[in-house]
């Protein structure tokens, strides 16, 4: 295998509407923040290349719409994700309560091979605001109960903990991706069955030599 293997990680961001998913992504990738709210419709994609433990890794970030009517992205959308980021707004208890639903939804749709150990990362966003309503303790407790998910308190606005959170996201996604072991088993030898098998003439009816 090539020494400098290319790695691409599919990272999906889920959470209620306006918790700051798009803002976090923009802060991380473009170092930008705006107070204006533009609801994501369908999905947004961003790409970022980063180094994780001296490996070059491309993060393909799939930002989704929190608003229900903009969802329905289809099962295929979630397939083969390497990490799922669950975001809530620390000033909104409702968005915290939704985490269970988002997590279940993801596991159903993506149906990863080992759901108990699938890498989720939880972000409590908007910690720059005064009117906090979900305590760190409560959030940490929830993460603890889910097999000890990593938890970060972030602010997309003030760029607090965003780099750190995405670093963990990249690292855990990479671990998930590399988990894939390849066996180089040769397929069985072709059996010649007297030329009668249907698939041997399927390609083109009149173009054989």
């Amino acid at each position: 295998m090539a020494t400098r293997k290319k790695v691409l990680l599919k990272v999906i961001i889920l959470g209620d509407s306006s918790v700051g998913k798009t803002s976090l992504m923009n802060q991380y990738v473009n170092k930008k923040f705006t107070n204006q709210y533009k609801a994501t419709i369908g999905a947004d994609f961003l790409t970022k290349e980063v180094m994780v433990d001296d490996r070059i890794v491309t993060m393909q970030i799939w930002d989704t719409a929190g608003q229900e009517r903009f969802q329905s992205l289809g099962v295929a959308f979630y397939r083969g994700a390497d990490c799922c980021v669950l975001v809530f707004d620390v000033t909104s208890p409702g968005s915290f309560k939704s985490l269970d639903g988002w997590r279940d939804e993801f596991l159903i749709q993506a149906s990863p091979s080992d759901p108990d150990h699938f890498p989720f990362v939880v972000l409590g966003n908007k910690v720059d605001l005064e009117n906090r309503a979900v305590s760190s303790k409560r959030a940490q407790q929830w993460c603890q109960n889910k097999n000890g998910l990593p938890y970060f308190e972030t602010s997309a606005k003030e760029a607090i903990n965003v780099e750190q959170a995405f670093k963990t996201i990249a690292r855990n996604a990479l671990a998930q991706e590399s988990d894939v072991e390849l066996y180089n088993e040769f397929p069985d030898q072709i059996k010649l069955s007297g030329g009668s098998t249907e698939n041997r003439s399927s390609g083109g009816d009149n173009c054989a030599c």
């Binding site: 994609f45 329905s72 992205l73 289809g74 099962v75 959308f77």
Partner: peptide, 8 residues
């Protein structure tokens, strides 16, 4: 995404 939405 385009494929997925139509498949849905």
């Amino acid at each position: 995404a385009l494929m997925s939405v139509t498949q849905d």
